[in-house]
Each structure stands twice: as C-alpha cells, then as structure tokens.
C-alpha cells in the first residue's frame, strides 16, 4: 500500500508559480507516494498571524487540521508555510485543547518538501538535469524554524550537471518578510540589494531556494536592477527540470 501524502500547495504558489507544486507532485509520485490535493485548501494563515489577527489564524489552523489530518504525511514546498504550521500552530491553538490534541497527533507527520525527500522518501536520484553552477539561498523560516540546511544541498548533489557554489552570507535574510516588503519597501529593497550582490558575485547561473516569497523578492529586485539573466528557481523545479 502506497502511503498517502497530502500536498499543501501554499496559496502563493497556487497562483504565482504553479510549477512549484506541480514539481512537488512529480517528485513525490516518483518516490512512490500517493499524492492528494485537498481542493478547498487556501492559506496556512501566516499573513494573519504576522499581522496579529489571532482569530483568522485560528480559523485557518482549524481548517488545515480538517483538511489534512487524515493523511500519512503532509508536505509543503515552502519552509515558511510549513514553519508557520509546524512551529507556530501550537501557539495559535494554545487555548483550544481539542484542536491542540489533534494537532499534536499530526505534528510528527508534517514536512517541508526537501526535508521529506531526504529523510522520509530517501530520494537517490533526481529526474531533472541542470548545466552549470547554482548558488543556494537559505530562507529564514526553513533554516531557523525547521532546520532546513543540508537537505536541499544533498538533493542538489543528485542533479546531473549541476554544481553548487555557495554565496557569501547565504543565511542572511533577503528582506522579504511578507507584508514588510510592501509596508517598508525601501528598507526591504536595500536588504535585497545585498542579497542580489552576493548572488551575482558567485557568477552562478541560478539562485535556488525553497520559498516563493523570497524568490519573488529576489527575482523582482534582480530584474528591476536590470539583471535579466540570473535565474531564480525553486528547488523542486531544479530537481524535476521543469519550470
């Protein structure tokens, strides 16, 4: 019997970059999991959580449990969304003993995509290929909330033709920060400039990362500065070779 994986698409990728969840489906299926996509899913609630809107966050946390608790695993192609679910829901649900109990039951089965591919699926080959050098940006929530660091690098080493060239300060924030990027656009862009400079200094053809928010921030800023060549890719896209 194949294990059932519930894919948490992430609201941003659903609209802005569907190739990411599509690549995630392909990777999970190639690792012999049965992938399910609850169609009523929307958002993990992070925008509400970070805006201090507790009621909405709570409602969305409950919605998540309703939609996903029946799966063997839940996987999201985003450290930021999975960080919210896995590390912050306990705080969101702290006054709801029933929900908290349900959450505790599912918590060990929640995974960010690269973490899942390495630790559960034990991926040993990648369907995609990439000619040349890439550099990897460690997005904040994945890195600091979920400990995603070696997993993506290990996966990238499976891609034929690809070599990894680390940038300076790969763990430094890109300046996205959700609504922060819009409310304090100038500060956010100044932070992004350092990130872009570090990326460009590597001469890599692409910067690879695991979070769409940061991708949009970095790509948006690179393009605005006139860099039309450095590709900004999600790790799932690189692993499948599909963008």
């Amino acid at each position: 019997m194949k294990k059932r994986v519930g894919l948490f698409i992430t609201c941003l990728a659903d609209v802005m970059r569907p190739s990411i969840p599509m690549a995630a489906v392909e990777l999970l299926e190639s690792a012999h999991f049965e992938v399910h996509v609850p169609m009523a899913q929307t958002c993990c609630g992070q925008p509400a959580y970070n805006s201090g809107d507790h009621r909405t966050t709570l409602a969305l946390a409950e919605k998540f449990l309703d939609e996903f608790e029946s799966f063997d695993y839940v996987v999201a192609p985003s450290g930021s969304c999975m960080g919210t679910i896995k590390t912050h829901y306990p705080d969101v649900l702290k006054d709801q003993p029933d929900l908290l109990r349900r959450f505790a039951a599912i918590q060990p089965r929640l995974f960010e995509l690269t973490d899942f591919l390495v630790r559960v699926a034990h991926l040993t080959e990648a369907p995609g290929a990439f000619e040349g050098e890439v550099t990897y940006h460690d997005s904040c929530s994945g890195l600091r909330e979920l400990g995603i660091k070696q997993q993506p690098r290990q996966l990238l080493s499976l891609v034929p033709g690809l070599s990894l060239c680390e940038m300076e300060q790969c763990e430094q924030c890109c300046g996205f920060g959700g609504a922060f990027a819009v409310k304090y656009g100038n500060i956010s862009a100044a932070i992004a400039d350092d990130k872009c400079a570090n990326i460009q200094a590597t001469k890599a053809r692409a910067v690879v990362l695991g979070d769409l928010g940061c991708m949009m921030q970095i790509e948006g800023r690179l393009r605005r500065q006139g860099d039309d060549t450095t590709q900004v890719l999600h790790i799932a896209e690189v692993l499948t070779g599909k963008r």
Binding site: I9, A13, D14, V15, M16, R17, P18, S19, I20, P21, M22, V37, M39, G185, N186, S188, A189, A192, M215, M216, Q217, E219, G220, R221, R223, R224, V232
Partner: peptide
C-alpha cells in the same frame, strides 16, 4: 522597488 514576476500558467489547482 521591484518587478512583480507573474505566472505563465493557470493556477495549480486548475492544472
């Protein structure tokens, strides 16, 4: 401050 990269395909759910 930045360009907005936009999708090239229909939503993931549609696909």
């Amino acid at each position: 401050y930045r360009d907005l990269p936009v999708p090239s395909q229909a939503t993931f759910k549609q696909q």
